[in-house]
Design a protein around this nucleic acid. Structure first.
Length: 254
DNA sequence: ATGGCTTATTGTATAAGA
């Protein structure tokens, strides 16, 4: 079973890249973030022709999450139960006995801003909700754009970024609370190249200079951890014409 | 490094992303 996550920064713009990537990589499941479109605009038919059924929770201009799957999806839910939120950031489904949760975590803009405090509240609510989800579904995988680089080695220049949004101690503590639920950063279960990142700023030739961050993650529950076979970041789509600023993160599970 | 892109909007500048 091959699972992947990709923040596409507008599915309207990136659909050709997504279709090419599906054709070339044949994942079983692909989670998307920042589709930036309403459900009525979502390309269900085109994806079906490519062999994928899809579920989507979207809105105009901002946010929007989707799960694409070659296998049937059941028990579809939107959002974080019990958390009042207008922004479309979470969608979940059960696929082949595994609970798949796709998240687009709040960016936070700047430490201590209103958006940062929303990020912290949002992450707290996610963690509380997932505690129950894990109890109900021991085989759970949490994929998405977390907007958190968990460790200094996940940031191209920790000194320059010290204390800033994406790497601040508060955000890293929130990430740790997620892993304390019994979730594991699947990328780090395997040996990886130094300076592996999943996002690079469009400006300053960020990609060419590898000025990036690893902020897209696939966390697996205790029950799934022993089944993990390999994990990698696929930088190829970031090299294309008019790319997303993020690139896919991939996990293979037995 | 402090913007230098990129996206969407009923736009021709602004907001937001990370």
């Amino acid at each position: 079973m091959k699972l992947a996550t990709w923040n596409v920064n507008s599915l309207n713009v990136r659909l050709p890249h997504v279709l090419d990537w599906l054709r070339d990589n044949q994942p079983d499941v692909l989670c998307l973030q920042e589709t930036k479109q309403e459900d009525s605009k979502f390309p269900y038919d085109t994806l079906k022709e490519a062999g994928y059924q899809a579920i989507h929770s979207g809105q105009k201009t901002y946010n929007g999450v989707a799960i694409l799957s070659r296998h049937p999806m059941t028990d579809v839910t939107h959002d974080i139960a019990g958390f009042e939120d207008d922004q479309k950031r979470v969608i979940s489904a059960t696929i082949d006995g595994m609970r798949v949760v796709c998240v687009y975590v709040v960016n936070g803009q700047a430490v201590d801003s209103d958006k940062y405090h929303y990020k912290m509240r949002w992450l707290n609510a996610l963690t509380d909700w997932l505690r129950g989800e894990l109890a109900a579904h021991p085989k759970l995988v949490l994929l998405g754009d977390y907007n958190i680089a968990p460790e200094d080695r996940d940031c191209h220049d920790p000194a320059a970024w010290l204390g800033q949004v994406l790497v601040s101690p508060g955000e890293r503590e929130a990430f740790k609370k997620l892993t304390d639920l019994g979730l594991h950063d699947s990328f780090r279960l395997f040996e990886q190249p130094e300076k592996s990142f999943s996002w690079w700023d469009y400006r300053m030739m960020g990609f060419r200079r590898n000025f990036g961050m690893r902020i897209d993650h696939i966390l697996v529950s205790d029950a799934l951890k022993p089944a993990c076979l390999s994990a990698h970041i696929d930088k190829a789509p970031r090299k294309l014409e008019r790319p997303s600023d993020h690139t896919p993160v991939v996990l293979e599970i037995a």
